[in-house]
């Protein structure tokens, strides 16, 4: 899709069925999706349309029944459990609606955690964590605990964690869901800035105004892509005075 840009995440013909026999439900059917670095793709669709399943498969939390999943040029679907876990730790980060921060750890410790779990030495992990916090504009809150932070600040920590160190793919599941509209916008601006800086982003949201921060929107219904908008071009002369 983006010939000039490196494809970070590629799904080809991905299908997934939940359950078996008579109660089997096709959660995803024949999904093709590319997300390049520097690109944010939004997934929209009603509940039960397969958005979360797609996100989980993209992140290696769940395996497809058919099709290929490639993360930074490496097949995820054929990798063994250990290899998959390693690729997740090194390449892919999640951002959830409810932040999923560890309450007993400070912001910088939260962000450093995936690096340390990956075997990075604590000092180096901390340095990478500080860089990631810097990138989302809250380096000054590094030693705060999640409970002493606002929702928007916590979500920034989560974005920093998702993209700490070598990680370049962020999978965001309703990241603005718990935030008021102004804070939600700020978080989207941060996510967009991180993507513009070279990350690849896949965003699940049911709010069109947050999906509008993406380059493309893919609409899912009953596990199929029913519609996909074209990549955003330059802003046309929409209004009389563009300031």
């Amino acid at each position: 899709m983006n010939a000039e840009r490196e494809v970070a995440l590629r799904l080809v013909g991905v299908s997934k069925t939940h359950g078996e026999g008579a109660t089997a439900v096709a959660a995803l059917t024949d999904i093709d999706l590319d997300v390049a670095r520097g690109e944010l793709v939004a997934l929209m669709g009603p509940s039960g349309s397969g958005k979360s399943t797609l996100l989980n498969i993209a992140g290696g939390l769940d395996g497809p029944d058919a099709g290929e999943v490639t993360v930074m040029g490496r097949r995820l679907d054929t990798a063994d459990v250990r290899e998959r876990a390693r690729m997740r730790r090194q390449q892919v980060g999640y951002v959830f609606q409810d932040y999923n921060l560890v309450a007993a750890l400070t912001a910088v410790e939260n962000v450093a955690l995936p690096r340390e779990l990956d075997g990075t030495r604590p000092r180096r992990a901390r340095r990478q964590a500080m860089e990631a916090l810097e990138a989302v504009g809250i380096a000054d809150l590094a030693s705060r605990y999640p409970d002493d932070m606002s929702g928007g600040q916590r979500q920034r920590v989560a974005i920093a964690r998702a993209l700490v160190g070598p990680r370049s793919i962020v999978l965001a599941d309703e990241p603005t869901g718990a935030l008021d509209s102004v804070t939600g916008e700020e978080v989207m601006a941060i996510l967009r800035a991180r993507v513009d800086a070279g990350a690849a982003g896949l965003l699940v949201t049911h709010e069109p105004r947050f999906a509008a921060w993406s380059d493309r929107t893919v609409f899912l219904r009953d596990g199929r892509v029913v519609d996909a908008t074209r990549p955003a071009g330059d802003v046309t002369e929409l209004l009389v005075t563009d300031r």
Binding site: H18, G19, V25, A26, A27, P46, S47, G48, S49, G50, K51, S52, T53, L54, L55, N56, G59, L61, D62, A85, R88, G93, Y94, F96, N100, L113, P114, R161, A162, R221, D222, G223
Partner: peptide, 21 residues
């Protein structure tokens, strides 16, 4: 026939808790 049962998220939910940072 439509198959829009609330299927997604079930498998991911369990894995998510400890695994998905």
């Amino acid at each position: 026939r439509d198959t829009s049962a609330p299927a997604s998220g079930v498998a991911g939910g369990a894995a998510r808790a400890g695994d998905a940072w």
